[in-house]
Simulated scan of single mutants.
Amino acid sequence: MAFLEGPSPKQAEIIKQELCEGSGDLERGVRDLQSMCAASPYLPPPEVIDTNILGLFMRGCRMNQERARAKFEAFCFARARCRDLYEHRSLSEPPLNDVVKFLDIAPLPKLTDEGLRVTIFRVRESYPESSADIVAAVRAILLVGDARMHDETLLAGDVFIWEASNVRASLAARIASAANSVRRAIHLAQGAYPQRMRRIHIVGAPPLIASSINFIRSCVNEKIKRRYYIHQKVEDLLEHFPARVLPAEWGGQEESLDIITKKWIRRVDELRGYLRELSELSTVTPQPKFDSDIYGTVGAFRKLDID
């Protein structure tokens, strides 16, 4: 059962103002995206698309129809052009069931006072070395992102927290060997998903993965590069987030991260049919109409304005 909480009525009004959403704008935007799909031989027919997803694209693009069209088209085409990243649709069965021994992926239930959704990625303590498969982790992160879109509500943007205190030296080499998949996933997150990335917090990262962090930062646009925050310990996060949002073991008032992560594993299984259909939104695509292949080349999506 979905457990993402939406904004209060007062928050909702503030968020809508920030997103430039006036009366009837969301409905008109959704109809525009449906019309685009109906007119394209490469996009799914409008009747098979969850209107909640179309609404997320409109709001994530601050009601800019041109940007929403470009992002939603990229979202669909990614299913064909990056098919290897969308092959598996369960976190409780092989091969992705091994990833959860290495990495917790947990969108938190409550929004911040600003109306932001916080997602935690925590490298688990004493993880088996064999479970630290970076390509599989990329697939799992995209999978949870797809599942979240089914349940997400009105929000002002996203915050990611990477807790890396348990990272081992071997991980840097694994990230380097999976550089192509990591780069593609970051480009997709920026240009093919409706999120508005507001901040990225990295906690407890040892110096041995500095090269990995620099590589990841090199894949994002300049705006997002300026939104990175580095912390020594999780307690520092209480200076940036209300305690009611954060998990109990980090000094917060929410359920433990273990419990939240297990809920998401179950939620992904509950949505398996939906997620399988989402991975098949597009199977044939036109030739890229950008200067470079936006689904695999450095510099992808830089023609899109990212908030």
Rank of each mutant, 00 (worst) to 15 (best):
C20M: 13
P194E: 06
V138T: 11
R62D: 08
P242E: 09
T51Y: 05
V99M: 00
L171H: 15
R83D: 06
F72C: 05
E222P: 08
R244P: 00
Y228M: 08
A106K: 04
E129V: 11
A2V: 09
I265H: 03
I161F: 02
E21L: 02
F77C: 01
A140F: 00
A210M: 08
P107H: 03
P109G: 08
A38H: 13
I294L: 07
K233V: 07
T285Y: 03
I49H: 09
S256I: 00
P107A: 03
S181T: 05
F121S: 01
L56H: 13
L238K: 13
I120R: 04
D236N: 11
T261M: 00
I175P: 06
S8Q: 10
E114G: 01
M36D: 06
R117F: 04
A132R: 10
P128F: 04
E66C: 03
S165D: 03
M63Q: 15
K289G: 13
V118N: 02
V268M: 07
A172W: 08
Q34A: 05
R148L: 11
I209R: 04
D113W: 00
A80C: 12
P41Y: 03
A179K: 14
S130H: 12
K263E: 10
G299F: 04
G22P: 03
Q232S: 13
I259Y: 12
I134V: 15
R196S: 06
T261A: 11
L237Y: 02
V159Q: 02
L304R: 02
S181W: 06
F102D: 01
A147C: 12
E73K: 14
V135M: 08
A300Y: 00
G6H: 07
L33V: 09
I53G: 08
I209N: 00
D291M: 08
I15G: 07
A172H: 11
I49M: 15
P194W: 05
E249R: 05
R267D: 00
A176C: 07
M63G: 05
G191M: 03
L4H: 10
L111N: 06
K16R: 14
I186L: 15
V144P: 08
N221Y: 12
R217K: 15
I216Q: 01
V182E: 02
L4S: 07
N52E: 09
V220R: 09
L281Q: 03
A176F: 15
V182I: 07
R62F: 10
S35A: 14
R272N: 11
I202E: 02
D236P: 00
R69C: 09
L304E: 04
L171G: 01
G157D: 01
A12Q: 14
Y86R: 06
Q17N: 11
L96F: 09
E66A: 12
E152G: 08
K263G: 14
D32S: 15
S40L: 06
A179R: 15
G273P: 03
E280K: 12
D84M: 04
